[in-house]
Design a protein around this nucleic acid. Structure first.
Lengths: 346, 346
DNA sequence: CGCAAAAATGTAAGCGCTTGCATTTGAAAA
DNA sequence: TTTTCAAATGCAAGCGCTTACATTTTTGCG
């Protein structure tokens, strides 16, 4: 099939070669013209650019990747696309990358470290130059793979003193502790926590520890904390809340691992006719849009999603370029007090 | 930098050739072993697989794409990642693709046809074998480009009799008309519509036309419909609603182009102390999670997000494989009646 | 046991691009 | 004008993989 059609290839996209012929220069010159215009004389550059335009030439990604060993594509692996937790941050991440000519590939791991490892390999195989990862928890093999391949990555959505990897985020422990301090100051002593499964999820774990720390600081027995573990979803939040409120030790404050769970709790409270915050206070974490929609408004921790996304993009680009920088960035996550948190009923 | 390390390349990833040597077969056999195992004898296959495992071999994407002219990567371009409208559908889309060994690349166009065209080119350049697009509205150049490159695509989130392109979705016009029929049946005559900008957004336009059609069918003057156009966001929904309710002709029913706008309207109603549905009814479109959270629950049109995503994936895979199929699929979008819609106040 | 057909394997030609190195060109310097 | 040197350009060797085609090995049957 390749012995003819040397001259006119009807519906295949034009190649570097075609451009070179039209412009009557070598392919090398065309390539340089596109990637390093400064090395080419003005006259030729114009001839080449015209040819490019005339042919509607666009470089073949695979070939480029193969020859240059660089793809200008970054990857992001987030636990889920199914709710809004990561949406805003990711959008900002993508926008910033776009500004630097980098395309984003997104995959989701469904909160499974094994699946995440697969996705990491898939993205790298597909040429991702660098990766955005969420949280520190993942298989040792995942990290080994990244090191071995020398793939730059940044861990986002968390910041942990104890970790030395490039990362950008906030201190989940600290933020949750601050929220809890406030809750305790309001007189609450019967506390329940609805959290995502903590195994393989350092953010959830750190938030949990923040709750514990606050209780301890206040002289409360951490063992008195009621804990329900359930995957993030409104549905699950509602069910967990229902269980808690119909249980033997009805809490006066239900701390939720994130806003999605809290939203579920809020709607269930409403359905059950339980007054919030009169009978029970509810708090969330993340400050996604939902927090403003429920009524009363949800007291939560405001996470700087867009800043984090943008920052992660910049960090990653710097890492990719080998520019030395501050590769660990802590952002602030402040309390967002709204109506769902009130004084403990007396 | 390449004059030495011919013999032992320490930290470069292993290639097909390395595997072939270790297994003492040709590269062709290794390749077949990986892509068409059935063509290789069991003995060799095992030898090869062992070598693959031992070396931790993973194919180089660029090279594979270059040689095979196929990447097993699909692209999706959605208007925004910033809210939940597309999240669930996309998640299902991705899951289904994953099941078929296809990786998904996502980009977002910010509702701009020009940006979308860029993204289409970018994804194709990066090797996308096929694309998922939202809605029919886009630049002629975008379609021309896709045709010329013979890139399979499917238009989702809408189904329109008049369009002949491969697509999967529901009839926005019909669905909105059905909702409106119901609204009118409840006695509402003073109607307002909060819609996304209709230029470049056929879904929004069709929904709008559905509203008009229902009014006309009822003998109402379509010109009496109050219209506010504003980009999808809770914030904007709230502001639009506020404007409407403080205007001269207060509607008894506010129809929102989607749930995000409606959620904004609902929260604003609450803030203003306007009773829903006592004083004013509010409806949405999409049935995303938010619809269940607001109170009262939001009457909306249920869109089969996950079905649509899964269906789109299957359709696209069939198209890519050149399997002839029914390439136009209409899904049902049914009314979801909740508390936010009531009889018109008398 | 021999032979044709089928199955398994190997050979090698690209795929479209980048880039080190050699060569040519064009000025500036002598 | 000749010489020198930097800038501009071309040449051609890969990058790692797939696949058509040629070759070898197996298998089935008479």
């Amino acid at each position: 099939m390749s012995e003819h059609d040397q001259t006119n290839r009807p519906r295949t996209s034009p190649t570097l070669n075609d451009v070179a012929k039209l412009a009557k220069v070598s392919t090398a010159t065309v390539s340089r013209c596109l990637n390093n215009p400064s090395q080419v004389s003005k006259a030729k550059r114009e001839r080449v650019m015209n040819a490019v335009r005339e042919l509607g030439y666009a470089p073949n990604f695979g070939a480029q990747a193969l020859a240059a060993k660089r793809t200008n594509t970054f990857g992001a692996i987030i636990p889920t696309m199914d709710n809004a937790i990561f949406a805003r941050g990711l959008q900002a991440f993508q926008e910033e990358l776009g500004r630097h000519g980098v395309t984003l590939l997104v995959a989701s791991s469904s909160y499974s470290p094994e699946l995440e490892e697969e996705q990491i390999r898939a993205l790298v195989a597909r040429g991702a130059d660098a990766l955005l990862l969420i949280g520190h928890d993942r298989t040792a093999d995942s990290y080994a793979f990244l090191e071995q391949r020398r793939i730059p990555y940044v861990v986002a959505w968390t910041f942990n003193e104890a970790q030395s990897r490039p990362s950008i985020g906030f201190d989940n422990h600290k933020a949750m502790k601050r929220l809890m301090d406030h809750v305790l100051r309001l007189g609450h002593r019967d506390i329940a926590l609805i959290t995502a499964p903590r195994v393989g999820n350092d953010r959830a774990r750190e938030r949990f520890e923040g709750v514990q720390a606050a209780m301890q600081a206040q002289g409360l027995d951490p063992a008195s904390l009621q804990i329900v573990e359930t995957p993030y979803s409104i549905q699950n939040g509602a069910m967990a809340f229902e269980g808690l409120m119909s249980g033997p030790a009805r809490p006066t404050a239900v701390i939720c691992g994130n806003d999605v769970l809290a939203a579920g709790a809020m709607t269930m409270a409403q359905k059950l006719g339980i007054d919030v915050p009169g009978e029970v206070s509810i708090t969330g974490f993340d400050d996604i849009e939902v927090a403003e929609i429920v009524s009363p408004g949800l007291t939560t921790v405001h996470v700087p999603h867009r800043n984090m996304g943008r920052g992660a993009a910049r960090l990653l680009i710097e890492l990719r370029n080998g520019e030395v920088t501050q590769s660990r960035v802590e952002l602030q996550a402040d309390l967002k007090l709204r109506g769902s948190l009130g004084a403990a009923p007396s």
